[in-house]
Design a protein around this nucleic acid. Sequence first.
DNA 1: GCTGATCGTCTTTTATAGTGGACAAAATAA
DNA 2: TTATTTTGTCCACTATAAAAGACGATCAGC
Lengths: 187, 187
Amino acid sequence: MQQTENDPVQAIATRLKIEREGRGWSLAELAERSGVSKAMISKIERSEASPTATVLGRLSGAFGLPLSVLLALAERAPERVALQAEQPVWTDPETGYTRRAVSPANSRLELLDVSLPSGVRVPYPASAFAFQHQQIWVLSGRLDFQEGGVMHHLAEGDCLLLGPPADCSFFNPGEVPARYVVALTRR
Amino acid sequence: MQQTENDPVQAIATRLKIEREGRGWSLAELAERSGVSKAMISKIERSEASPTATVLGRLSGAFGLPLSVLLALAERAPERVALQAEQPVWTDPETGYTRRAVSPANSRLELLDVSLPSGVRVPYPASAFAFQHQQIWVLSGRLDFQEGGVMHHLAEGDCLLLGPPADCSFFNPGEVPARYVVALTRR
DNA sequence: GCTGATCGTCTTTTATAGTGGACAAAATAA
DNA sequence: TTATTTTGTCCACTATAAAAGACGATCAGC
């Protein structure tokens, strides 16, 4: 009977567009990757449709995000300050890799606080960051970053500006977890 | 194109039933509270329908949970161990109250790790825990727990067994945050 | 200018989500 | 027992989510 105005359609709309455009994907490309028709994606992004759980699952899958994290990002109020306790965190249970979305919602500049356990390698396909400008800044520990054919050895305090899109991977060669910041913005 | 089997319909089904039955609500009662027809709720619980974002928003609203938390609870693999990093946390941005779901998914016994800031009061309506058996155990700090007309003053180490459903409220009279465990099981 | 490719939206059609009411089974009461 | 209330499921119908393809706009290269 109560209607506390928590229809998530609008929030999903804007977040979906951010995730898609952030990766430089067209409607057709996301449709290809997710199996959802581009007409439907277009409607969802314009909040002209309320996607089913099934469709949301396919979309979050295409982004490589758990559905709950996608919605957590969508639900965040567009505020100036993002308290640590409110920041969505995603942990890969297999490796212990964790990623925290630091920036408030809908910012032009996004900051990710990442912790990479010792000895773990994380791939980062070129398609994931086309049309983005980004830097990697190591807060603590060591990080080997492979960018296409080039290998960068980063230590505490180092900051790397990423070049044109290439298949990359993160690797922690040290004994302790590596903590680094990924800062990115759309062109 | 990929289909990584992340259709959340089944997970939502079982979680929805847990949340509803945990509160002792019938289909009709949840329908009344959420504005979703009981026929539809029945279908969702039997995973015979894929609810839209709008419907999910209404349901999570009836439970007083953010949609992302409901989904996070649903997404948790039914494992024996729940690593701290995987436990869904919910923070009330107004008061700083945080609640962490400690137990693995779908357990008969649920443990919540709650942190209540100094001076904050949290209401707890009787309807929220009908048909549940529960105890409150203070880990640190002090907690005033009002149960109907009775007031309990709890200090570190104290444990209170809740009586029949009544309107309750938590209050932290101390200077430091109160940390306590809520343990509950369905009858 | 033209051409072809790619973009997002719009149109049509189908599948199904969602509602309201009827129903049988189970529980509760008298 | 019988009557009454409450439970969850099923049915018929409507609303709309979703797919497939057409369409005009934009932009590149020639």
